[in-house]
């Protein structure tokens, strides 16, 4: 037990407590005066800053839309692949590919493909008779584009969980429903979906937590722009911590983000799961 405890203390508890303490300091790495106790100063500034609330709104939209679309597509694809068909294994392997690519590479790849002058996507857009679109530079387009990139990369993850869950449903339940004359839609709604409740909860909770942290994709594509359209919480934290080196401010920012993630995930899990499951 002791090695486990040491590991937990060294790599989880200590950094967490340290960051909490840091969030109460006015501390810029390049300030020769070093750390100065600031009390609630960082939190006070943050909570009064419209830019903070804007980044909360951007993050919530990003997370909600990308996770909902991923869940819908992942479940749909899983239902499609539930029954075997010729070539399904190759297709399934190909579907997995985006998930194994590093987010930085994904960002770079899409940045080039979406480029308004030289990108292949805009070439197709133009061939279809439309005018070229600055997907990553036009307000109104940038955030939806980032959501779609996230959907492209992470739908396979949800698909994988859903497919595994579907394959775990006892065949006799579905067979009995069929014998009773239930239509496919009723079978899905009354039998399959309730049995997928836990896998859905797991997949969505994992994706929620991960989507909240989005940073590398933004770094490689929009850098928070155009304007402040894609300035998520993680991006703002990076900006404060690693460009301005305002460590105390960035730590306070991180704690507010952590609270938001915990609240959203807890509310979601409470809605999805019964009381006895949670206990």
């Amino acid at each position: 037990m002791l090695p486990g405890l040491l590991f937990l203390v060294g790599f989880a508890i200590y950094p967490t407590v340290y960051s909490l303490i840091t969030s109460f300091y006015r501390w810029n790495l390049n300030n020769p005066l070093g750390k100065q106790w600031g009390g609630w100063h960082n939190y006070d500034i943050l909570l009064k800053d419209p830019a903070f609330w804007h980044s909360v709104w951007v993050t919530v939209r990003y997370v909600a839309l990308s996770v909902v679309i991923q869940l819908g597509l992942g479940l749909g694809l899983a239902l499609l692949f539930f029954r075997r068909f010729p070539g399904d294994r190759i297709l399934r392997a190909m579907l997995m590919l985006p998930m194994v690519v590093a987010p930085v590479v994904v960002g770079l790849l899409w940045r080039f493909m979406l480029n308004a002058q030289f990108g292949i996507v805009n070439y197709v857009v133009e061939q279809l008779g439309f005018t070229r679109i600055d997907f990553l530079g036009e307000p109104g387009w940038a955030l939806p584009t980032l959501i779609l990139i996230d959907v492209w990369q992470w739908t396979p993850f949800v698909f994988l969980i859903m497919l595994a869950a579907l394959q775990g449903i006892p065949e006799d339940i579905l067979e009995a429903a069929r014998v009773d004359g239930a239509k496919p839609w009723r079978i899905f709604w009354d039998h399959i979906l309730p049995l997928l409740r836990y896998p859905i909860a797991v997949a969505v909770a994992l994706r929620l937590i991960d989507a909240f942290r989005v940073y590398d994709l933004i770094y490689m594509t929009t850098r928070g722009g155009p304007l402040d359209e894609t300035e998520t919480l993680s991006w703002q934290i990076y900006d404060a911590g690693f460009r301005s080196f305002d460590i105390g401010y960035a730590a306070a920012f991180s704690w507010l983000m952590l609270i938001l993630v915990v609240v959203v995930t807890t509310v979601f899990l409470r809605l999805m799961l019964r009381k006895e499951d949670l206990s």
Binding site: N115, A116, N122, D134, L136, P226
Partner: peptide
């Protein structure tokens, strides 16, 4: 400027 100037 060419299209996509905001991302240049």
């Amino acid at each position: 400027m060419p299209p996509g100037a905001n991302s240049v």
